[in-house]
Structure formats: C-alpha cells, structure tokens
Design a protein around this nucleic acid. Structure first.
Length: 552
RNA sequence: GCACCCGUAGCUCAGCUGGAUAGAGCACCGGACUUCGAAUCCGGGUGUCGCAGGUUCGAAUCCUGCCGGGUGUACCA
C-alpha cells in the first residue's frame, strides 16, 4: 500500500518533468516501483531512469539524478534517494511512514487485506465435480482445496462468488455402480451373482449393499431394474463426499445435475443451434461438431451412433447455461486429465455467441504421496489409503489444506506424509500457526501482568526502530497486494509463501527482542505491533481456509 | 506425430509477468531455554536456472529449435 503511494508520487514527478520539458510523455505507464532483493538497495526501487533513457535516448544516470532530486523533496514520505548500478533509483522511506501502518491495520482489523477490485463481478467457480461413484480421492482433494481457496480469495477481493459442483448421476458409470451394488447385495444374501467386468471393487460398495439388506432383507433379490441399487449407492456416496467436504470447511452453493440439461431441452437446443450455423453434420451414423471450422485439428463426435451424447455436448451446454445465468467470469478447476475438454468447450461457447475469454480454466497436475521418502502406490486396492478422508484422519484438516496449496496448480504436488504429520520444527503449517499462537501467548501474559494494551494514539511509534520491526511492517504493508494478486491470478500458493515469510520474521523478532519489559512506553509500542501482526496472520490463514488457533 | 504442463541447490519447490550479487523449506553439521511458549532462533551453499541460438541497456523470466519427464490426443468422463 505504501508502494502504491510512492507510485503516485513518482507519477506526479513524471508529469512535472514533462511540463518542465525534461522528457516527453512517451514512457507513461511503462516504469514500475519494485521491491529490491538486497539490503542497501532501499525500501523501494524504480526502473524509471532506465526505461526513460531507452525511450528518450539519454543517459540513464542523468535522468536518475533528475528524478531523485524531485523525489527527495517529498519529505513526508521519503528519507533519502540513491542512484545505483546502471541507473536504478532506490528510495528509502521514513520509518514513521511504516509505523503509520499499525493503526490502519488495527482499525480495519479483519477487513485488512480485503479490497473491492472485483467490483462485485459475478463469478462462478466450478470444482470437484466428481460423479458419485466413490469417495473423494487425493486428486479431488487438491482440487477441492484449490477451488475453495480461490473462491475465498475472490470473495475477499470484492467478487460475488458462486460455488458449483457439477455431476452426472445417469450414464454408464452410474449404471455400473448400480450393478456392482446389486452384485454385492446378492452376494450378501447368498444368492448367485455375477460381478460386472469393470465393476467398482471398493469396500464401500459392500457397506452400501449391507444397508440394503438391513432395509429390505432379500426382497430385492429378483429385481431386474438396477435403479434401487443405484439410488442407494448414489445417496450413500454423496453423503460421504459432502461429509468429507464439510470436514475441510467446503460448502457449495449449488449441485448442478447434468440430467437437467436433457430434461430442460438444453442439449437439443445446443445441437440445433450449432446445426443452424452449419457446424454440425452426420457421418458414420454419428453426429459431429465441425471444430475444424473453429481452428482445431479434427472434428469431434458429439452424439455417438448409439444415440448417446459424448461428454463434450453436455459440457458445452452446461457452460452455455453458466453464461445465460449471467456470470461475468466462469472459472473451472479441472484435473489435467480433463484438458481435452477445454478446447471443445471454448469452441462450443464461442460458436454459440459467447465470449470465451470470460472462461478461465485452472488445470492442476497430479498429487503423489510419499512416506519414508518413497512414493505410496495409489492402487484401488486397500492397504494404501487413497481417500481424502483417510488423509485427513492421518494428518488433520489444516495440514491437508496447507499442503495442497503449497504448490502452484501447474506443478505436480508431492505430499510428504512424514512432514505433514510432524508436530514440530519442520512442518510449515505449524510454523505459521505457532507464530499466531505465540502472539496470543504474549497478549495473555500482558493481561496477567496487568499491562494494558495502549491505544495507538497514545503510543510513541518512534520507539519502533529495530530493523526486525521495520521489516515486519514492510512485509505487512505488502499483504493487500499479495491477496489481490493471488486472487486475480487464481494462485493461493502465493498466500502460503507470504505467510511463511511473515511467520519467519516474527519468530526471529521474538527471539531477539522482548515485548514485555520494564520500559512501559516501548512495551506499549511493541504490543501494538504484535497485535497488528496477529491481525495479518489470522486474516491470511482464514482467507485460505486455515484456522488460527490461539493455543496449540 | 500433434497439443498443454513441467525441467532452478542432494530432495521438494518459489521467483512479484524483463531488472542489480538467483531464493525458501526439508535433509545434514555446530551452537542458544533460571527471561513473553524451544512446534522457536542463530551460524554453515562451489547452482552450466535442461541444451543451443535469438530479441535488448539487461533474460531463470519473452521468441524459435532441440533433449528429458508428465498428461491428453476415443463414438470413456
């Protein structure tokens, strides 16, 4: 936030230089204010001189001198300006400017870090979308956390967020599920049975079959229709899935059933509309979507010769419905194995007259589990756990969420079970949470000692002079920016990295400087600082759905 | 074959959309609790940023071509 203040100042100096004839306006919007990597390069630096020198064909050091003379005059913000290297202008900000951040944080409290950049844009985030054929797997877990955190971040940055789970309870998969359940049922009551070839092998099918035996005895024995089996399975599995999601603190605004696309006629609509545009034709008894007309390499089947649509058609119809429901931004979280649908859906909606640039697809790579330094094989067999529930049982909700967010979506994610279960030093979740708990402990201690936490207006903030204190303030001033960019980039991992950084600075500070001392004014100032850090850590954790425990 | 993603320290990964001397965690070694919680801190790094070109004041970052890995490329979802 101080960075943007400085940018405004720099822009003003730039304008001033134009009227003075020092340079033209060609560089408008080209230069930036950055955070230098190394000590001694100031609190902020700007490439102003380098950019202008390139455009104006002048000596960068000369321009650097001119701009730094102007910046130096802004005494309420700037302490000192250096010109370094090829022409970087390094700005040192007055310590009081950093300290002024404390009351801002304390006053805005849980609002600190929120913004309205979203301008109440309506955004729909579709994620998980697993069909109810079994418990959520590790891959779904990553997607669930990713989608939910993205949704949370969009919410705090001023978007109107709608979370949706898309599923299909018809189709082949579900039929096989029903048949598997029936087979287990017949097995349980001792009747002859035949397990379907691609049937679902999991234990949970047996549990479902047991429930049917309890409810109906053997009265379903001669039932030819699979639907009672299917229905029971679906209900059980959905219960299981939503239970898992609830454990992770995830709620959906809507579960969208693919079936409704058929019953409401949207599937036929889409085909007809595409046909009218000359983008649909029949060949080999199937119906094809002429995607070669839309820049793709080959045409795609949308209705099989059996009369059943392929997955593409409902996907396109579903996205069209999202557009028709007036969302401004459509975000899909998919596993990378679904990448093939993306071009088809985008071609489809764009052929139907909607703007494909309003669709953003976040593709995440796979998750592997490691234990004892070795990869855990993820077979459908038992022995090794593969469900999110089992993962949560072993490591806890917060570590699960945290670890799933530690990597950007593009990267494969290695989930280190040994690290996640350690309640110590190495575990980054506890590292951050412990930072928060520690601050709570200090404040409890203050209360016990009868030390009042002063109002910031009664505090002499010039007492906060330690480098660790100023660094903490600098880091905290970047928090709103971090939240905004991780929201707009749909990249929660940035928040995680930020929190580790902030917690690290806090722990260093804690070990070097004591907050509660006999020096009352100093303790007062530090207590205010402590409370500010507490706010930022808590907000950061909560914004990505992780708890901030006061004691651990 | 084609499309997308990845290739950065022993391992797992960041790197703010082009900036200065490339970072963190883990692992390993050595230190710090009569003091606000040691789930913490302090010290210890000799990396061809996969390779080769190109763009420019400047490239891990952008472009092209290779190499290696993953995923997809169905009338499966």
């Amino acid at each position: 936030m101080i960075r943007s203040q400085l940018k405004n100042v720099l822009d003003a100096c730039f304008e001033e230089g134009i009227t003075e004839g020092l340079w033209s306006d060609k560089a408008t919007g080209k230069f930036t204010v950055e955070l230098p990597k190394h000590e001694g390069q100031g609190d902020f630096s700007t490439n102003f001189a380098l950019v202008l020198a390139g455009i104006e064909k002048k000596n960068p050091r000369e321009i650097a001198g001119q701009i730094s003379a102007k910046l130096t005059k802004v005494t309420e913000l700037v302490e000192r300006v250096d010109v370094a290297g090829p022409g970087f202008v390094n700005v040192f900000v007055k310590p009081q400017v950093w300290c002024a951040l404390i009351p801002q944080i304390l006053d805005t409290a849980e609002q600190f870090g929120t913004s309205d950049v979203g301008a109440r844009r309506k955004v729909i985030v579709e994620f998980v979308s697993a069909n109810p054929t079994g418990p959520l797997s590790i891959g779904h877990g990553r997607q669930a956390v990713l989608g939910d955190s993205i949704a949370r971040l969009l919410e705090v940055t001023g978007h109107d967020v709608f979370r949706e789970y898309y599923y299909n309870d018809a189709g082949r998969q579900m039929r096989v599920l029903g048949e598997s359940t029936r087979a287990r049922y017949l097995e349980l009551i001792g009747a002859p049975f035949e397990f379907p070839e691609d049937g679902y092998q999991g234990e949970y099918i047996i549990d479902i079959a047991k429930s049917l035996v309890e409810e109906h005895g053997d009265s379903l024995k001669d039932y030819q229709d699979v639907s009672p089996f299917k229905k029971q399975a679906e209900q059980f599995i959905f219960n299981d899935i939503s239970g898992t999601l609830a454990r992770m603190g995830i709620k959906f605004d809507n579960y969208y059933n693919e079936q409704s696309l058929y019953t409401d006629g949207h599937i036929d609509d889409v085909v007809n509309e595409l046909r009218q545009k000359g983008l649909v034709y029949e060949k080999d008894n199937a119906t094809w979507f002429k995607t070669t007309d839309l820049g793709q390499e080959q045409d795609r089947v949308i209705i099989k010769s059996s009369g059943e649509p392929t997955y593409r058609l409902p996907d396109i119809a579903y996205h069209r419905e999202k557009f028709r429901r007036n969302f401004d931004w459509l975000i899909d979280i998919f596993g990378s194995d679904h990448i093939a649908t993306v071009p088809d859906v985008l071609s489809g909606v764009s052929a139907l007259g909607y703007d494909p640039s309003k669709v953003t697809v976040v593709l995440h790579q796979f998750v592997t589990l490691t234990r004892d330094g070795k990869q855990v094989k993820m077979s459908t067999r038992k022995a090794n756990f593969v469900t999110v529930d089992e993962l949560i049982d072993e490591v806890g909700v917060d570590p699960v969420r945290f670890f799933f967010m530690m990597r950007k979506a593009d990267s494969q994610l290695e989930f280190d079970l040994d690290l996640a279960t350690k309640q110590s030093q190495e575990n980054p979740v506890y590292y951050v949470q412990y930072g928060f708990a520690r601050l709570c402990a200090i404040l409890r201690q203050a209360e016990e000692k009868g030390v009042a936490i002063p109002d910031f207006s009664d505090v002499d903030s010039s007492l906060l002079v330690e480098p660790e204190e100023l660094n903490l303030l600098k880091t905290m001033s970047g928090f709103p920016q971090v939240i905004e960019s991780s929201a707009l980039d749909l990249a929660p991992h940035k928040v995680i990295f930020y929190l580790m950084e902030l917690a690290g600075q806090l722990h260093s500070y804690y070990n070097k400087h004591k907050v509660l001392t006999d020096n009352v004014p100093l303790s007062g100032a530090r207590l205010c600082l402590i409370r500010a850090i507490q706010v930022v850590l808590k907000n950061g954790l909560n914004m990505v759905g992780i708890s901030a425990p006061e004691r651990m």
